[in-house]
């Protein structure tokens, strides 16, 4: 079996919504170059709807594919729905990810949430901090322990 599903390879080779957005309403960046992956997500919001999304990713094939898939899944959707996007849903939409690559889908989920949070803060929209959980969500991205 190949490392990646056809859907992952498709999104890796033809990433959707890749690029920058100079007039973004919210920008979220998660990950860490030391760990080897960083995702930056830009969103445009109108009347509570995410009208446009763009991303830039530094990372492996599954990180690029996860970002691409996440942008497709939230584009045109209400913010409230985007906040419900789970890493599981991203991984499922990609027809699965290898176990050691699941953190890439977690990163995609976090990038979306970080962009929404940034949008709320920039526009002084009150929100319940609980929906974004703890500030060190990056912990969720911690890899499995190195082989010993």
């Amino acid at each position: 079996m190949a490392l990646y599903s056809e859907t992952v390879m498709d999104h890796f080779q033809h990433p959707r919504n890749v690029g920058e957005m100079p007039d973004a309403d919210g920008i979220g960046e998660v990950g860490n170059a030391v760990c080897g992956d960083i995702m930056r997500m830009y969103i445009k919001v109108k009347d509570g709807i995410i009208t446009d999304v763009k991303f830039k990713t530094f990372g492996c094939g599954s990180a690029i594919a996860s970002s691409s898939m996440a942008t497709e899944m939230i584009k045109g959707k209400p913010i409230t729905e985007a906040l419900e996007l789970s890493n599981k849903a991203v991984a499922q939409a990609l027809d699965g990810l290898p176990a050691h690559k699941l953190h890439c889908s977690v990163l995609a989920e976090e990038a979306v949430r970080a962009a929404v949070k940034d949008y709320y803060e920039k526009n002084h929209i009150p929100y319940d901090p609980a929906i974004f959980g703890c500030d060190d969500c990056v912990k969720a991205h911690e890899h499995a322990p190195a082989e010993e």
Partner: peptide, 25 residues
């Protein structure tokens, strides 16, 4: 890893020492 996957598409088999290809942190 992205580099390797793309090089494979472009007709070059290579390898990398990135974490993503080593399967560890």
């Amino acid at each position: 890893e992205g580099l390797l996957l793309w090089l494979d598409q472009k007709g070059v088999a290579a390898s990398s020492g990135s974490a993503c290809t080593s399967g560890s942190l």
